[in-house]
Amino acid sequence: MTNEDVLQDHAHRQVVRVGDTVRRPVQPWTETVHALLRHLEAVGFPYAPRALGIDEKGREVLSYIDGESGPLGWAKVVEDDGLTAFARLLREYHDATASFVPPDNAAWAFGATESNDREVICHGDFGPWNVVWQGQQPVGLIDFDFARPAARLHDIGYALQYIAPFRDDTECTRWLRYPQPPDRRRRLQRFCAGYGLLSTADTADIVDAVIREQRANVERVRRLADAGHEPQATWAADGYLRDLEEKVAWSQAHRHLFESG
């Protein structure tokens, strides 16, 4: 009997490791994500898992990427080098997806944005927890369930809310591994420089993008919860939507912490 090491054991999803592979439940968008992963392999993007098909239990099979991820990822982006590496990884990923042509029957968890908004295939959940690290270097990008065609700024805004971060001082020091309240403006500028997004002299447009993405995330979670998807349904029942709305309000009230003077 093949040994299965449980990597994630939530009520809605169990993820296991079998040898050098990861097995995860199939979703309606799995086939589309596998097409994306095959494209990333073909263009030489080295950080994504390889799509290896479906196993005898009906689970998707992906190659395993060895390293630290999940909650351990938060500490990796506190220092400047990790923050820059994180931004460069997102840029490399976006550039690698720009030539991807989705299959005719493509299905996405959140649905695609308007076609004229499509620049790349956004990861959709680009946070420190979904990067695999060896030491201070990212070696993998995982969990593409929420990938979708969209503008680059969707992923950029999503990532920045967590790593600038658009969070109060208490959350930064208690949960996000910061030894002291961060210089949010400098961190936002450093991320933008690492991505190669723009001159770091003007950040107002980026702050707008973050707040738009925060609002959009509230609606995505609400939509999935209303459709009965987990864990979003449980999150909504536990009051998570209210927490997300409070974070939007905090960002609006404290945008001066991020904008260039």
Results as ranks from 00 to 15, higher is better:
Ala48Met: 00
Tyr64Asp: 00
Val132Trp: 00
Trp133Leu: 07
Pro165Val: 12
Glu245Lys: 12
Leu176Pro: 00
Val139Ala: 02
Ala209Tyr: 00
Val6Tyr: 03
Arg255His: 10
Asp243Gly: 08
Pro182Ser: 09
Ala237Lys: 14
Leu83Cys: 02
Phe146Ile: 08
Pro71Ala: 06
Gly261Gln: 10
Asn116Tyr: 11
Leu40Met: 10
Cys122Leu: 03
Ala109Met: 15
Gly70Ser: 11
Asp145Glu: 10
Pro231Met: 04
Pro25Trp: 01
Leu176Trp: 06
Glu119Ile: 03
Asn116Lys: 06
Val210Ala: 04
Val78Asp: 06
Asp55Arg: 01
Ser63Arg: 04
Gly228Lys: 10
His123Glu: 07
Cys172Ser: 12
Gln8Gly: 02
Arg220Ile: 04
Gln232Trp: 14
Arg242Cys: 07
Val18Ile: 15
Leu176Thr: 05
Leu160Val: 09
Arg177Val: 04
Asp9His: 14
Gly73Val: 00
Leu7Thr: 01
Asp117Lys: 11
Asp145Asn: 09
Cys192Phe: 01
Arg118Met: 12
Gly228Ser: 07
Ala106Ile: 09
Ile211Pro: 02
Ile206Phe: 03
Gln189Met: 13
Thr234Phe: 03
Pro25Gly: 03
Leu37Val: 04
Leu224Ala: 12
His229Glu: 15
His256Met: 06
Phe166Tyr: 11
Arg215Ser: 07
Gly196Phe: 06
Arg185Gly: 05
Trp108Thr: 00
Arg148Met: 15
Trp29Arg: 08
Tyr93Gln: 03
Gln232Glu: 15
His94Arg: 05
Pro102Gly: 05
Gln137Ala: 14
Gly261Ala: 13
Pro25His: 01
Val33Thr: 15
Thr203Met: 13
Cys172Tyr: 02
Glu68Tyr: 05
Asp9Val: 07
Gly135Lys: 09
Leu83Trp: 06
Ile65Pro: 00
Leu7His: 08
Val221Ile: 15
Asp55Met: 11
Phe191Tyr: 13
Tyr64Cys: 04
Ser115Thr: 14
Glu219Ala: 14
Asp145Arg: 07
His256Trp: 08
Asp205His: 10
Gly82Met: 03
Phe86Thr: 05
Thr203Leu: 14
Val43Thr: 13
Leu160Asp: 03
Glu92Gly: 09
Ala159Phe: 01
Thr30Asn: 04
Asn105Trp: 03
Leu188Trp: 03
Gly127Asp: 09
Ile54His: 02
Gln232Pro: 01
Asp205Tyr: 10
Pro103Leu: 04
Pro103Trp: 09
Glu92Leu: 13
Asp243Gln: 14
Ala96Met: 05
Gln134Leu: 09
Phe191Thr: 00
Glu213Ile: 02
Pro182Tyr: 05
Asn217Gln: 13
Leu89Ile: 07
Val210Trp: 04
Glu213Asp: 08
Phe110Trp: 14
Gly44Arg: 10
Leu7Tyr: 08
Asp208Met: 01
Pro149Glu: 10
